[in-house]
Write a protein that binds this DNA or RNA. Structure first.
Length: 267
DNA sequence: TGCCAGGCTTCAC
DNA sequence: GTGAAGCATGGC
C-alpha cells in the first residue's frame, strides 16, 4: 500500500465537484476511481494521509493524476482578500484540486455534459465504458476503462444513442475523427474549439480539466448566475486571473451548496 | 408529471 | 453581430 501525506485534498468535495465522473463512494472517506485504464480505491484519514491500496497505479501516479505537484496553498493565498464571497468559498471548498485527467476522456465527458445533470453524465459515461471500454479484471468483478478514440470512431450513431448521449452522438463522432486525425503537436486549447459541438464553455472545461490550464474559467449557468447575482453583473477580477479555473471550482461548489441548503435561492 | 440540467448549432433579423 | 428556437434523455 502506498500512502502520501497531503494537504488541500478533500476527497468528498473533489468527487462531487463535477470535474470527474468515474469516482464512486464505496465507504466513508473511500472512493473507487477509474482513470487511465486503471482502477484504484483511495481513502483519506483524519490526518490527511491519502492511501492508494492498489500498488499498480503506474499511469495514475506517473501522470500526477491527483496533481500533488501543484501548491494550492499558494494559489489560495493569491486570492483577493477583499472578495468576501470568494474567501467564503475558499474556506468551505478550498480543498479541491484540479485533477490531471486524460485529455481524450475529458473531451468526450464534457461534450456529454452539455444540458445534463452531473448524475446523468455519470450514468451516460458508465454506459459508454461498459459498451466500448476495455475490461479491467479485479478478480471478483470486472470494471471498464474509458473507450479509445478508435472504438468511438467505429461505433454507430445508434450504438452511441443507446448509451444515452441523445443528440450529442454526432458531436462525439466528430471528436473521435478529430482526435485521431490531428497531430499531437496541434492539439491545444484553440484547436479544440474547432470540433463540431464544442463551444466556449466546453472548450474551457477541457482546457482546465484536460490540459490543466488553470487560467481557463468555464462560464456555465452557475457562473453566469454568480456574476449576475453576487457581483452585480460585472465579472469579478478572479475570473481573469492565472488561477481562475481553481477559484471557479471553489465557487461552483460553494454556490451549489447554498442552493441545496435553501439558504439563498435564486430569484 | 413537469422541470431542468457544468450548451451548442442553426437560422432569422 | 445578436437573439431565439430546437434539441434527447435522465434524475429529482
Amino acid at each position: 500500500m502506498d500512502t502520501l501525506n497531503i494537504k488541500n485534498f478533500n476527497i468528498e468535495h473533489i468527487a462531487m465537484s463535477g470535474q470527474c465522473f468515474r469516482w464512486n463512494k464505496i465507504a466513508e472517506n473511500t472512493y473507487s476511481v477509474i482513470a487511465f485504464n486503471e482502477y484504484c480505491e483511495i481513502s483519506v484519514d483524519k490526518n490527511g494521509i491519502l492511501s492508494l491500496p492498489n500498488p499498480s497505479l503506474i499511469d495514475v501516479l506517473d501522470k500526477d493524476y491527483f496533481d500533488l505537484s501543484t501548491d494550492y496553498s499558494l494559489i489560495k493565498a493569491k486570492a483577493d482578500i477583499e472578495d468576501t464571497y470568494l474567501q467564503d468559498a475558499i474556506r468551505q471548498f478550498g480543498d479541491i484540486v484540479i485533477l490531471r485527467q486524460d485529455l481524450w476522456e475529458t473531451i468526450i465527458s464534457f461534450i456529454i455534459s452539455q444540458r445534463k445533470s452531473i448524475p446523468a453524465i455519470k450514468t451516460c459515461i458508465e454506459n459508454l465504458c461498459q459498451k466500448f471500454g476495455d475490461e479491467i479484471s479485479l478478480g471478483d468483478k470486472t470494471v471498464y476503462g474509458f473507450p479509445s478514440p478508435m472504438k468511438i470512431k467505429i461505433a454507430t450513431h445508434e450504438e452511441l444513442k443507446a448509451c444515452g448521449v441523445g443528440y450529442r452522438d454526432k458531436y462525439i463522432k466528430a471528436a473521435a475523427e478529430w482526435f485521431i486525425n490531428t497531430p499531437e503537436s496541434e492539439i491545444n486549447l484553440q484547436s479544440i474549439r474547432s470540433i463540431f459541438g464544442i463551444g466556449e464553455k466546453v472548450q474551457n472545461c477541457i482546457g482546465l480539466f484536460g490540459l490543466h490550464d488553470l487560467s481557463c474559467c468555464p462560464i456555465d449557468v452557475w457562473m453566469q448566475r454568480i456574476i449576475d447575482e453576487r457581483y452585480g453583473g460585472i465579472k469579478p477580477k478572479w475570473m481573469e486571473s492565472e488561477y481562475a479555473g481553481v477559484y471557479q471550482q471553489y465557487v461552483f461548489m460553494y454556490e451549489r451548496s447554498l442552493y441545496r441548503t435553501g439558504g439563498k435561492k435564486w430569484k
